[in-house]
Design a protein around this nucleic acid. Structure first.
Lengths: 231, 231
DNA sequence: GCTCTGCATCGGGAAAACCCTGACGCAAAT
DNA sequence: ATTTGCGTCAGGGTTTTCCCGATGCAGAGC
C-alpha cells in the first residue's frame, strides 16, 4: 500500500510501548513528506534498524523500560551525527529536556502534547533547529543568563544522569546490589552514587534517601500511593 | 466508515496521551466486531462521552495526568455497572492491578504488552471474564489462599500496636537508632520489630520495608475515601 | 598548552545495620 | 494449664553503610 516516494524524509520511532509506536507512526505517516522507516522497542533494535534503514530523523522515548534513551542518543550522536533526534517523553521536561539536548538530541517534546505540536517539533528538528516548549526555552535562557540565580531549581535537577538513574531505582525498591547487577557495575560504585545523592539532596542517612526516592517515584508516576503486597 | 454494522461492540478509550489513544484506537478498529465510539483525555470528558456514546467497553489508563483513573472506574461502576472496564497502564501491575479490580475493573493489562495480548485481554473482559497476566493471577491467588480463616483486608492490620508505631516512624524517615531513642528502647528491640514487620508484610529486605512504610505514610496523609481503616 | 572542576568508576576499612536464633515475663485465650 | 501472642532484649555472623580515598576522562577557563 505504500508508494515510496523518492524524496521522503525517513523517520525511525523508538519507544518501548507498541501502542505508542503505532500512534506516533500513524501521525507521522499522515504528514506529507514524512514516512516511517522503522520502529524499535529497545536500544539494540534501534541501532540495528538504523544500520539498514538509515533514517533522517529519530523519535526516541527517554525511558525505554530497563534501558535509557539518553544512552541511545549518545550512541547515535557518535556513529551517525547526521541523524537528528527528537526526544518524546512523558516525564517532567524540567528534568530531562536539558539532559536530552546535552546528549545530542535537537528537541524535546512531551507526549501529552497534541499531534500538531508534535509534528511542528519534528519538522523544526528536521530543519536542523532546536525545539523546546516555550516554558522550557525560557527556563533554560534564565538558567544561562541569571547564572547563579538557581533558586528555583529543584535539587533533584542537580543530579547527574547516573545519579538520577540510581535514585529512581532506589525509589522502585531495588537494593544496592540489585542496582549494581542491573547496571553491570560494582556495588561499590552504587554506594558512591548513593553518597553523592545524599549530599546533593541533603539527606543524612539511607532511610531518608530511600524515603525521598520512593516519594519522588510516586510523584513522578502520580501513583495513588497504594499499599503493596509485594512478593 | 461507511458500513456501521449493527452488532458492533462499542469501545471507549480513556488516556491522557493522544498518541497512545491513537495507537489503541487503530488496533481496536482492526479487530472485527469492535469499534471505537469515543476517545477521552480526562475524567470529565470520559463521563461526558459515556452519556452520549454509551460504550459497551472502556479501556482506561490508570494515570490520567493529574487525575486518577481509579476514581473514574468507581464512577463508571456506580452509574453504568453494565460497562466493562479494562485498565491499561504502564506502571507496575503489582502496585495497581489489585486496586483496579477492587475499584470495579474487570481486567488489567500492561501497556508494554504486544497488541495481540491486549486484544485478548479486551475480548476476555468483553465476555464478562476477568483478565490478569499469569504472573499477577498467581500472585493474587496466593494472596487470597494464604489468609487463614479471615479475609484480611490489609496485612498492615495484622501488625501489633508497637509494630505499627515503628512502621510509621520508618515511613517518616527515622533510622533504627532514632526510633529507639524516641521510644526509650534498645535499638535491638527496634530491630526485632523491623523483622516482625517484614515477616508479616512479606517484605524481603530493608529497602522494601522502607519503601512500603513510606508509601503507607503518604497514603495516610491523603485519602478521602480510604478503605483501610486500620486503627 | 595546562589546570581545574565534574563525572563515572572502583577500593579499604571501621561502624552500623541487618538477620537469625533464642530468651524471658506477662497477659489473654483455649 | 497450656498455648499463643506481645513486648522486650542479647549474641554473633553477615551484609551494608559511610567516609576516606583513588583513577581516568571530558570539558571549561586561563
Amino acid at each position: 500500500m505504500p508508494h515510496p516516494t523518492i524524496a521522503e524524509t525517513r523517520v525511525l520511532i523508538v519507544d518501548d510501548h507498541p501502542f505508542m509506536r503505532r500512534g506516533l507512526a500513524q501521525t507521522i505517516k499522515d504528514q506529507p513528506g514524512l514516512c516511517v522507516c522503522g520502529e524499535a522497542g529497545s536500544v539494540a533494535e534501534a541501532l540495528e534498524i538504523i544500520e539498514s534503514a538509515r533514517p533522517h530523523l529519530a523519535v526516541v522515548d527517554i525511558s525505554l523500560g530497563e534501558e535509557s534513551g539518553i544512552e541511545l542518543i549518545q550512541s547515535i550522536r557518535q556513529k551517525w551525527p547526521e541523524i537528528r533526534v527528537l526526544v518524546s517523553s512523558m516525564h517532567d521536561e524540567t528534568l530531562f529536556a536539558e539532559r536530552a539536548l546535552r546528549a545530542g538530541a535537537l528537541g524535546y517534546v512531551n507526549k501529552g502534547e497534541p499531534p500538531n505540536v508534535f509534528i511542528a517539533a519534528l519538522q523544526r528538528v528536521n530543519s536542523g533547529q532546536i525545539y523546546l516548549s516555550d516554558r522550557m526555552t525560557n527556563r533554560m535562557l534564565d538558567h544561562v543568563l541569571t547564572d547563579k540565580g538557581e533558586q528555583m531549581r529543584s535539587p533533584i535537577e542537580t543530579l547527574s544522569n547516573r545519579e538520577l538513574e540510581v535514585f529512581e531505582m532506589i525509589g522502585k525498591g531495588l537494593a544496592t546490589k540489585q542496582i549494581a547487577a542491573k547496571l553491570g557495575l560494582s556495588p561499590k560504585t552504587i554506594e558512591t552514587y548513593r553518597e553523592h545523592i545524599k549530599q546533593k539532596l541533603s539527606l543524612s542517612n539511607s532511610t531518608e534517601l530511600t524515603r525521598s526516592a520512593v516519594q519522588w517515584v510516586l510523584e513522578q508516576g502520580r501513583l495513588p500511593a497504594g499499599e503493596n503486597g509485594s512478593e
